[in-house]
Design a protein around this nucleic acid. Sequence first.
DNA 1: TATGTCAAGTTGTCTTTACAACTTGAGAAT
DNA 2: ATTCTCAAGTTGTAAAGACAACTTGACATA
Lengths: 241, 241
Amino acid sequence: MLNQASPMPLYQQLADRLSAAIRRGDYPVGERIPSEHALAARYRVGRPTVRQATEVLVRRGALSRRRGSGTFVTGHPRELAAFSMAGTAASFRDQGLSVDTQLLEGVGARSVPADAGDNPFRGEKALFFRRLTRTEDGPALLEETYLDPELFGELRQVELDGRSLSAAIREHYRTEPTGGQQLFQVATASGARSTALELSAGAPVLLIRRHLHFPHGDSAVYSELYCRTDRIVPCQDLGDA
Amino acid sequence: MLNQASPMPLYQQLADRLSAAIRRGDYPVGERIPSEHALAARYRVGRPTVRQATEVLVRRGALSRRRGSGTFVTGHPRELAAFSMAGTAASFRDQGLSVDTQLLEGVGARSVPADAGDNPFRGEKALFFRRLTRTEDGPALLEETYLDPELFGELRQVELDGRSLSAAIREHYRTEPTGGQQLFQVATASGARSTALELSAGAPVLLIRRHLHFPHGDSAVYSELYCRTDRIVPCQDLGDA
DNA sequence: TATGTCAAGTTGTCTTTACAACTTGAGAAT
DNA sequence: ATTCTCAAGTTGTAAAGACAACTTGACATA
């Protein structure tokens, strides 16, 4: 069943299999999946390998173990790793989640209305782009980002599709954010945004407003992230070392 | 070195040892810790047990593995993030309003249902209390917190009204959270909760699920924060410094 | 019927062993 | 002096086995 010769570890392959099976509904929500012993026998691997595989899904929130009883499908939406400053796409990949980010609107100039709430570029011009992230279940995250045109003007010609904004900035400008801030609130999706997220108008979404500060300009990057938390759950690790 | 007879797993004990050693500075930031083989020999345990222990710290962000090279102590603790989880009131940006926190239900024992989603105490008993934070406009934040009864049993008699939980724990137990995680989700307020927040049933709220890890127990504190983001907006500073 | 006991099944923990993939630095070769 | 090769050390993955702790349901008993 599993490819022993593949460079992808067996436990990863198995985790993918199980994840797919859960999505297909082979293992319904709330039900028990086969025991570790049974899975080990079926896929011809050791029990530790099975545990390593289910561990991935437990951490992701898809499975839940009950000692003495079994391992169950939780039906929780998958959780995303740290919304750190590293970049949205990067934190997806790290979790092994297959998500796909697509550029809806390339980097271009835009005049920001003067009444645009928290937007640090309100009443001015800014660079703007829009990205959409999908899970297997459908669109999950709409990202609208504003950039300081004086600092990041050259990004206009940069490929952003499938790569992190932070990475692009780091490579082109050799600078990194010095800090930032995130605000979380419940908002209602407007017309264009609800369409992109396949939501009915007026449905609540999680709105994350993110300010990033750079050495040469506070709030040089501002993003609004509209998130369907039934598909993707933003997750933050709280520090200490 | 480790207590084989203890009910606490060896890998947890070892993780605590390593964590303490890092905090003490025995293993300086950026430096390598002893190899897994060396640790296994020193503590008289198998290498998988060592890996299980370091795995805890890697996930917590305290350690970082480099294949072929070693396991290293990562960057210094992010004090800011640590403090943003210290007190609820402190971590919310003051929008020019005075806030007031009131204890709705004092610390008491409670059986957590087995199907209580992400709650680490599901199917067990936990200490529980409930607080409500108000702005001038009305209730804004409902906080339901579960505590490990074995670790924090004495908090039953402690004054929590108007003071931070973290402060109470720090003073009584001389321990601090080693890390944690926050998940942000849009949820709908149920009966009792919508009443407390003066919302109509089914109105969307921001649900923050917060796990706090302590040296002697992961997820020893778990909170669900139901937030009216029209009155108060949770805010987090993004580290670096 | 109601209750208690027990056996079977399940996950939790741990050991020992083995090999693969990668990094680093020492030393040889140029 | 510079470059290359390689051995040693490190983490990554995996196996098979063992026992402990816990849950559940069947069964015997009252």
